[in-house]
Nucleic acid binder design. Structure first.
Lengths: 365, 365
DNA sequence: ATGAAAGCGCTAACAC
DNA sequence: GTGTTAGCGCTTTCAT
């Protein structure tokens, strides 16, 4: 009863008493077929439970009808939103999406790119981890590559869609300074491999560069507002859990006089909140906290956290559009910059003179 | 310089002065090739920047080397973890993963399944939304289908990997009852389409059935512990934001005497926390809250939320293994059940006699 | 050990 | 409008 192998276009043609080209026309929508024939073909196809093979079509057309998407980690809320955006756009364009996670490992990323090229995907969207992957080759073999959320300084010709991180940090700093804060701690993400906890050099490291953008925006805005900058208020940590926690704890204990902390990412923000709680600091009475990335828990936190929302979903959506629709317009005028939004909640308050006595001392690792 | 079209096996064969079969042998690892020839082939391939086409191979082999993964929503933390698990396993097996989100819409899911079948994926893993999709056909054309996290009652023959939700809820109820609670509200997820806020019927609705499992476990455990069950403490809500909030608010206002709330999912838990805050109820002094799904914010919450952790990542990993490796062992002895873990934090306290006066009155929509 | 040749399922000229 | 035919890039007998 059930056919051992799924029916092919040839089977359908035979069953409908037509040529295979006609069947192809019916299913690919190309050319013209009389209503009667079309009906017969459709009936035969239904009867045989025929499913056109994307493999055959792909081979002929030299494209698979799918795109590749590489993110650092699908469980990161920002990445997840980005993925959702790509999925939404790809769906409207009838393409499927091969997703993979590079976990910040350039070698792994290079492998993924290779696989994607072998699959002959119609394009690749990546939140790039590094320059090991042969991005140019990928852009050549696949029709194209678009970067999302991050760019690689050495590959300026690859089009990109980014959040306006500088603008986001600027609005946060302006907000904090407007509240009266002067000694603001900056928890920044260090590039992979950098010594954790060390103050950054202020220059862009090879990968990402986005951390550099945020730190520079922090410095620039402070300068612009004529707030003196203290180097040891700027801390760079690998944003992994423990390192981030250590960095935040170090900052808050070393400088008991900081009145506000700006975390340059949600993992760093999480660390800041946990450290403040561990040190028994009241937020915002003893210290104000704000962060980049408006993830779900920001609202659930007590007090709810003020954050800069970055349009992750839109970034994904636009990147996909850029890749598949606006091929022509691509890469002109530098990266596409999407606006961020400052979401004010309760975690930042006006400046108080000093921390309550006894607070801010280590009490908990 | 750059070839207009990427090199094919034929080009490499010509360049290396060998037949295409030899090149194929070199790249597919099949058959035997002399070391010298292999070297020449590899050199030629490198020279031409040759990438074997998965399309050609797939057509011949009648499999694409990829699997499909359908989840309700990639931005849901549980789903994201599940996806990560599938990705991890697929990677070890050298398969790529086509991911898509059905958003709880059976029609959309059916479309996705169709696309996946057209792609001739080697198998499909799904957190199923409904029975519209032709799962049996998919299982036939693709080699197989495995359900994750949910099963479809009408398709018992499809293998599945699930969390032991019943056990999780049971441990939560036992914990709460052990703390002295007797009037425990249950916030359950209603099947899509059911009237929100209405008490459920206690029977499995067509889709998912997982909500049914949790509610039944709630009832059963209470009965087993000889705690009287009050029907109007059981509320079913669509777990979407507003509906969940409304359901939680309804429960807490209608029954000012509930001393604990068990939310059957993280969205419902979020609603419970927000409502408690809105009603100015102290947690756990006025009301204890616990939920199923140990998502990131549970720890960031104040107080941190007690929750049942479900092994989302493992579910994904096992489902993928089952699909690709343990084909033989599949579907024997019913679904694979993975254990949950009760993570006790600060959101549940011992029973107090009554809510503080004035609390629990509506004060905030 | 290696090459020639026959498809895998489909689309796109090109004939009629 | 519809059928015929020639590949798309690869794997795989089957010879050699």
């Amino acid at each position: 009863m059930t056919p051992a192998r799924s029916a092919t276009i040839k089977d359908v043609a035979a069953a409908a008493g037509v040529g295979i080209a006609t069947v192809s026309r019916v299913f690919s929508g190309t050319g013209s077929v009389s209503a009667a024939t079309r009906e017969r073909v459709l009936a035969a196809a239904r009867e045989l439970d025929y499913r056109p093979s994307a493999l055959g079509r792909g081979l002929k057309l030299r494209r698979s009808g799918g795109i590749g998407l590489i993110v650092p980690d699908v469980t990161d809320p920002f990445c997840a939103d980005l993925v959702a955006g790509v999925l939404a756009c790809a769906r409207t364009l009838g393409e499927h999406v091969i997703v993979d996670a590079a976990h910040g490992d350039p070698a792994r990323e290079a492998e993924i790119v290779d696989r994607l090229v072998e699959q002959r995907v119609d394009g690749v969207i990546a939140v790039p981890a590094g320059e090991d992957a042969d991005w140019r080759a990928a852009a050549r073999v696949c029709s194209s590559v678009v970067f999302a959320d991050r760019v690689l300084p050495r590959l300026p010709e690859i089009p990109a869609v980014l959040a306006d991180d500088a603008g986001g940090v600027r609005s946060l700093v302006e907000y904090l300074v407007g509240l009266g804060h002067r000694r603001i701690g900056f928890l920044g993400a260090a590039p992979p491999g950098a010594p954790s906890g060390a103050a950054s050099t202020g220059r862009d490291g090879p990968p990402g560069a986005s951390w550099g953008v945020r730190e520079r925006a922090f410095r620039d805005t402070l300068a612009q507002l004529r707030v003196p900058l203290e180097e040891d208020l700027i801390v760079a940590a690998r944003s992994a859990g423990d390192a981030a926690y250590a960095a935040a704890a170090g900052l808050l204990q070393r400088r008991a006089d900081v009145t506000a902390v700006l975390a340059a990412g949600h993992l760093l923000g999480e660390a800041a909140v946990l450290v403040a709680r561990g040190l028994d600091l009241r937020v915002p009475a003893d210290v104000s906290i704000a962060m980049v990335d408006d993830v779900a828990w920001a609202e659930l936190c007590d007090p709810p956290l003020t954050a800069v929302a970055r349009p992750a979903r839109d970034i994904g959506y636009r990147a996909c559009e850029l890749l598949l629709r606006d091929r022509a317009r691509r890469g002109r005028g530098g990266p596409v910059l999407l606006p961020t939004e400052l979401v004010v909640r309760g975690s930042c308050g006006p400046l108080r003179t000093a921390r309550a006595p006894g607070r801010g001392t280590a009490r908990h690792a």
